[in-house]
Design a binder for these strands. Structure first.
Length: 190
DNA sequence: CCCTGATTCGC
DNA sequence: GCGAATCAGG
């Protein structure tokens, strides 16, 4: 049985902090499902991260049948003193300007070079560009990563084309560069 | 349909 | 404490 050893928990914390999805973390750890990861994350109390989706706990009990059992908690102090934390989603940091043509010599594409992106994220991008499908504009679909690579004015230009994440326009790696988990840009001590 | 995280609750 | 089942949303 795989249990949550200190090491495993550490990996979990690290990856979750980096914005990795529960499924990715689960796969990395092995022996656990994403549900286990999510459950652990909650138990550890680090469930934050501006969960794009969800965030509507109470307010849904009819559903279908709740099969198992749903005794229905009678007493529900629905009035938690929550100062309401502002959730600006994630910060878009590098818009992939795929305009017409680049004036001259200035590549300008996404490559967030100077910007401060997680080294991990950048490394992932470099890695991904090796296995990218390298598709053309015409081949872009709603399921292909639309991250442009190279200079649009030359033949050395293509789109990532890997499978997009979920609803996002880019694949996992590129989403990581385009959307900073604001938790990483916060307190990035140096 | 794919994915995401959240929640519930039997174990 | 754990995590499968379930739910809700993109």
């Amino acid at each position: 049985m795989m249990s949550w050893t200190d090491e495993r928990v550490e990996v979990l914390k690290k990856m979750w902090g980096e914005g990795q999805s529960a499924s990715v973390i689960a796969k990395e750890l092995g022996g656990v499902t994403r549900n286990a990861v999510i459950g652990k994350v909650h138990r550890l109390g680090l469930s934050n991260r501006v969960t794009s989706t969800t965030a509507k706990p109470a307010a849904k009990e009819k559903a279908k049948t709740q099969a198992k059992a749903k005794p229905a908690a009678p007493t529900t102090p629905a009035a938690p003193p929550q100062p309401a934390a502002p959730a600006p989603e994630t910060m878009r940091v590098t818009p992939p300007a795929v305009r017409k043509i680049i004036p001259a010599g200035q590549p300008l594409p996404p490559q967030p070079s100077a910007n401060e992106i997680s080294p991990e994220a950048l490394a992932k991008v470099s890695e991904v560009e090796k296995i990218a499908k390298k598709i053309s504009l015409m081949e872009l679909t709603e399921k292909t990563c639309k991250w442009p690579v190279g200079d649009p004015a030359t033949e050395d230009f293509w789109f990532c084309g890997l499978a997009v994440k979920a609803g996002k326009p880019y694949c996992e790696a590129h989403v990581g560069v385009a959307f900073q988990p604001m938790s990483s840009r916060r307190d990035r001590r140096r």
